[in-house]
Design a protein around this nucleic acid. Sequence first.
DNA 1: CATGAATGAGCCTTCATTCAT
DNA 2: CATGAATGAAGGCTCATTCAT
Lengths: 208, 208, 208, 208
Amino acid sequence: MPKDTFYNLPQDKQKRIIEAAIDEFAAHSYHKARVTAVAKNAGISIGSYYQYFEDKKDLFKYIIDQTATKKINYINQDIMRNEEDYSFFEILRETYLSGMKFAKENSRLVAIGNKLLNNKELQQEIWQDQKDKSTDYFKNLLLKGQNNGEIDQEIDVELIARLLTGLHHSLVDIIYKDNKIFPENFANEMEIIDKMLYFIKNGLKKHS
Amino acid sequence: MPKDTFYNLPQDKQKRIIEAAIDEFAAHSYHKARVTAVAKNAGISIGSYYQYFEDKKDLFKYIIDQTATKKINYINQDIMRNEEDYSFFEILRETYLSGMKFAKENSRLVAIGNKLLNNKELQQEIWQDQKDKSTDYFKNLLLKGQNNGEIDQEIDVELIARLLTGLHHSLVDIIYKDNKIFPENFANEMEIIDKMLYFIKNGLKKHS
Amino acid sequence: MPKDTFYNLPQDKQKRIIEAAIDEFAAHSYHKARVTAVAKNAGISIGSYYQYFEDKKDLFKYIIDQTATKKINYINQDIMRNEEDYSFFEILRETYLSGMKFAKENSRLVAIGNKLLNNKELQQEIWQDQKDKSTDYFKNLLLKGQNNGEIDQEIDVELIARLLTGLHHSLVDIIYKDNKIFPENFANEMEIIDKMLYFIKNGLKKHS
Amino acid sequence: MPKDTFYNLPQDKQKRIIEAAIDEFAAHSYHKARVTAVAKNAGISIGSYYQYFEDKKDLFKYIIDQTATKKINYINQDIMRNEEDYSFFEILRETYLSGMKFAKENSRLVAIGNKLLNNKELQQEIWQDQKDKSTDYFKNLLLKGQNNGEIDQEIDVELIARLLTGLHHSLVDIIYKDNKIFPENFANEMEIIDKMLYFIKNGLKKHS
DNA sequence: CATGAATGAGCCTTCATTCAT
DNA sequence: CATGAATGAAGGCTCATTCAT
């Protein structure tokens, strides 16, 4: 985590640095990203950089952390407060929708997140532990759904929770090809989500 | 692709080099992998390396290529020849099973493949084009299923094909946490696949 | 051209680097000259080198550039300001004299210049364009001489300008064999120049 | 010089190797020319190369040597045999003409020769001694001219011989810009030679 | 004589990090 | 706190030459 000197900085300077970092880490792999570029684009000297952050990893971790927090807030805000008023599939829909909206508005953060997601080596370098919070989130949702009688009792909650997480990633992948909305075949993102939910709800088997 | 000098090498030497390369590329990101380490671990000089391969990329591409071929052969063998004798879900089951078996026996290759799969920057460095063949595979399967009357006509084939690809990746991820089989909660991989297929078939909605 | 970091350096450090570079480029062909040797002899680290210059070529170009500027100033100073007071042959004599003086005091620069002058491949690597300014210089001189009535109207100005340039190179070659003054037969350089000018003025034909 | 094994080779194989060498040395600077390229283009193995030649330098020296011999023969043939029948300026003209013809028909050899001519370091690497034969040639010519009464007694024969050599180089340079004939302003090479000879004969001074 | 696999010193360049001012 | 000059390990790659077959 950043040093105190960083937090003591005026807000706009902090922001400039973070923006530069996001640009750099989104554009290049972790190892190819250069702290000199971050410093330069943030308009600070490399000496200052090392007075704010321990090293390269420190900044990267901070960005990842900020992203996670930001994303969680994104979803919570709307629905979570009145969770009990909604059905499982409504909440799932809202969750995916929020995730998509987040991705749309924060494509650089998604790019960074994916980089970490698919680099075990880096993950170990960044954290030792770190449990997957997404899966827990979906797991809770499923359990409530089963209690409500909305969700098939046959399913394995742990497993399906992980699959729903995976589908969430697929969704973002599908909709954002190289930071551009996926246009072919679909009227809009909403249509994709609804088709995906239909699949999640009913499966592929032909209804007799 | 490797130079002729590489193909002229005795089989066991070729193998030693490939093994060393797989080790290195599985253990580190592409940019962090060192050709000197490959050469050293293969027991060849750096000069020899460059007589076998154009450069670092050349070897990496070769590994990727070999992996793709190997994986395709894995699935085709058993069922694909008598495709018409099987139902959609049987083929899907075999596909996922093959994928898992492959991942189990080739965890390092899977690690390398994932690295490429989730690094657009690297993909463009390696190839210009490269279409996703997995999605096409699932798409064909789905279309046949619809013709057979096995698969719900309501679904969007293109979209679901991509989701099935995503689920395939999730499956591999779930079963192999850091190259170790996922033990908790499951008797064996077969159980995971069947539970996953149940979900794919029926969805999550409670059967009234 | 060098980066700002180079120009910000104390004069004596700049000079040390330039001196080391001139030594290296004078002693070896461009491709054989080593930037590590320059850095070492200048007493800087290789890292510093690359903070001052883009690359190897950058420094070489800079040396060439400095040489050209320095040489032009050499000639201009004395006569060029009062050009109209002198005859063609007087100016020519001064030009050759200046060139010789320059070569005498800057034998390493001449060595470097010649290397470039006679290596088209290198020239294209260094610049794309680059016109020969020497020829233009002599051409102007000749045209004025013809207008004054000093110079034979029969000659082809363009051609002779190139020959005078060539003779200039020959002169430097003659006088400096391996950076040592050519001693045999001649009392001094002045004598050589005057004999050469006599030839240029009168040609070889016996005066009847 | 090449080893006996080289001279024992069938003529056409020798020729293939020489051709490949000339191509390579003409296209690249001595240090950038690759013996592997020569071997490859000659259709021999690198192992064979080192059975024919001591090293890289050995081949280069041989090419230079062959070139010198070939060029000398070029000039001698026509005139030298009946030298006494011609005036100094006629012989000079023929010499320059031969030189040009040679350069025209052997542009690659000229390229190689120039490379050596302008790389003192390389010259020392190739030979220790090597006197300039061209200058001796012109010197003899001039002395005879003076004896005949054709040539001004005032001139310094040694110096002028060197200048005539330099002019010879200039001539080749002028006419062959990057192996292409210099077209602008001149009807043909003959015109250039005659204009140059006019200069050499009469000098630049306006005839009163 | 022919072959070509093997070698490794050596080059240019990058970039995270330190430290004196 | 800010600055940016200085550092040097490390990496990809080249190519003349050797040597075993």
